Structures are given as C-alpha cells and as structure tokens.
Amino acid sequence: MSNSILVLGSTGKTGKRVAERLQNLQLPIRLGSRNGQPSFNWDEPSNWHEVLTGIQSVYITFQPDLAVPQSIEKIKQFTEIAKQHNVKQLVLLSGRGEKEAEACEQIVIQSGLNWTIIRASWFMQNFSENFLLDSILSNKVVLPTIKALEPFVDADDIADVAVAALTDSKHSNKIYELTGTDLLSFQSTTNQIATALNKPIAYQEIEMYDYVAALQSYQLPEDFIWLVQYLFTEVLDGRNESLSNDIETVLGRKPTSFHEYISKTLKTGIWKVQ
C-alpha cells in the first residue's frame, strides 16, 4: 500500500476515531498497533521499518503519554526512520502545557517534513473510556486535590481536526490548541454526569500521597501512577485555564460542549451498570 496513512495508536481514544474517519473516506490506511499487520510497538523499534514502508503520512499518538521522559528519544528515532522511508507528513497529537511534549513537538517541527501539531486538553472521554469510567459506574469519584479548571475536549473533535490535517495541506506547519467550550472543574463535570444519569455520584479530593497509595493498592503499573501524579501536580496548575478557537478555525463549527458529550455518551449505554 503506497501513499498510505499510518495511524499509530489505532485502538486508542483518538486513533480509532481517526482510522474510522479515514476508512469512511475510502483512503488507504495502515493500523499501527500491537495487533496490526505488521505489528507496531513503541518498545520494539526493530519493526518500525516494515510498518513505515509505503507510508506517506503518519498520525502519531504516543503511549502512555508524551510527558514520560523516554518519549523524546523514541519520537526522535521514529522521525528519523520515517524520513528514511520517504514519509512526507507527520501529524503529532500533543498535550497542552507539557514541557516533554513540547520537546517532542520540536523534533517533529525540525524534521524537514510537513508537520501539524495538535495540542489537546484533557479528553472528555476520560469519564467514559477507562480512567474514570469505573468511578462513574461505582458512584464515587476520588481524585487528588485540584485547584485549576480544565477546558475538556471531545476526542471526536480531536479526530476531526487530525483528519483535516492529514487530508488538506493548508494545515501543514501549524500548531493547533484544542479545547472545549468551557472551563470546568472535575467536580462540576462529575455533577453534570450525575444529573444526566439521575443518580448521586459522590466526589472527593484527597492528598496526592493518599491518592498514589490508593493507585498502588490496585497494583497499577508504576509508569501509569507516575503519569497521573505528573499530570495532576504539574499540568493541572492553572497553566491551561484558557479557551482556544482552533477547532472552529479548522472545522468551521463550535467545539463539542460537555453537555453535548454527555448526551451522546448516554446513547451508548456505557454508563449503565451491567
């Protein structure tokens, strides 16, 4: 498949949405995941050459997050191999206010390839696709103490912007910051979901060391615990308390509001206790 689009993280929140949209457009794509053919794994660069053969554009999502220190070296190595295979375009999903993510952005920007950077806020889907889903289903959300508000963004909006960047050259060499329509607290978002479900969902904030201890008691991976601690202590400090018009600029419509996200998520039945 020459001139194909490689979608990394094709089973993830945004990757699966980007892949679906490109398939609906009948564009040739290659799914970049551990179950893909050929398989892709950020920890196994030996097969990146095979994955990148015949690829023209790449949608890059990094697992678990560009915030982790090892991301910089891996993005650098991936970009170099992509250039060896004559890839023309890189679209990188990044995070707002993460210094490691910005270092990765610079690797892509300085690569000599066409590039688009998509800096996304916290995904609304964190409440319905892993992370906080079990908390919503169990009617109790417990998080570290959070003083900042967040402009939560819908993963569907991110995917729409990514597809626009992958299919229209006018988005080349641009950085887009994607936010929702409102600055919200985690408590207010939880309360909105509770109201929509017509059930009480308790919300509690605890000290970070107590939260880390709770995560460790569930035997979660240490890299996941580190990432959560980093995001809640470093990124959620108010640095991202601003709204952007970039979704409207790219798509010609307003971003999805949290209320609209709740409405469409209710239709999936994901919040119903089985």
Score class of each variant (00 low, 15 high):
D210S: 05
V153G: 01
T14L: 08
K147S: 13
Q37H: 12
Q70A: 13
I55D: 07
F123Y: 12
P144G: 07
Q110P: 06
A162D: 08
I146F: 03
K16A: 01
L243A: 11
G95N: 13
V235K: 04
L266M: 12
K174E: 14
Y176N: 04
L8Q: 00
Q37S: 13
L25M: 07
I175L: 14
D168N: 15
S244F: 01
Y176V: 01
T181E: 10
A164G: 11
S188M: 04
G32M: 04
F78H: 07
L27W: 01
D168S: 14
E260M: 06
N35D: 10
I270K: 09
A159V: 07
R34A: 04
W226P: 01
F123K: 02
L183K: 00
I117G: 00
A120S: 14
G54Q: 05
L6N: 01
H171G: 10
P144F: 03
G112K: 13
E207D: 12
S128C: 06
V161L: 05
V91K: 00
F127K: 08
K140W: 00
Q110R: 11
S39P: 13
S121L: 11
V163F: 06
A103D: 09
E98D: 10
F232A: 04
K16F: 00
S10H: 03
L166H: 01
A148N: 09
D210R: 10
I136Q: 08
A213I: 02
Q187P: 03
Q26P: 00
T268R: 05
A202E: 11
P38F: 14
V161F: 03
R253E: 13
V142N: 11
R119D: 02
S10A: 07
L137S: 04
E105C: 09
W42M: 00
L178A: 08
N41A: 09
E234T: 10
E129V: 11
K76L: 07
T116E: 09
Y203Q: 01
M124W: 05
R17H: 10
D168R: 08
I29F: 13
S169G: 15
L251D: 07
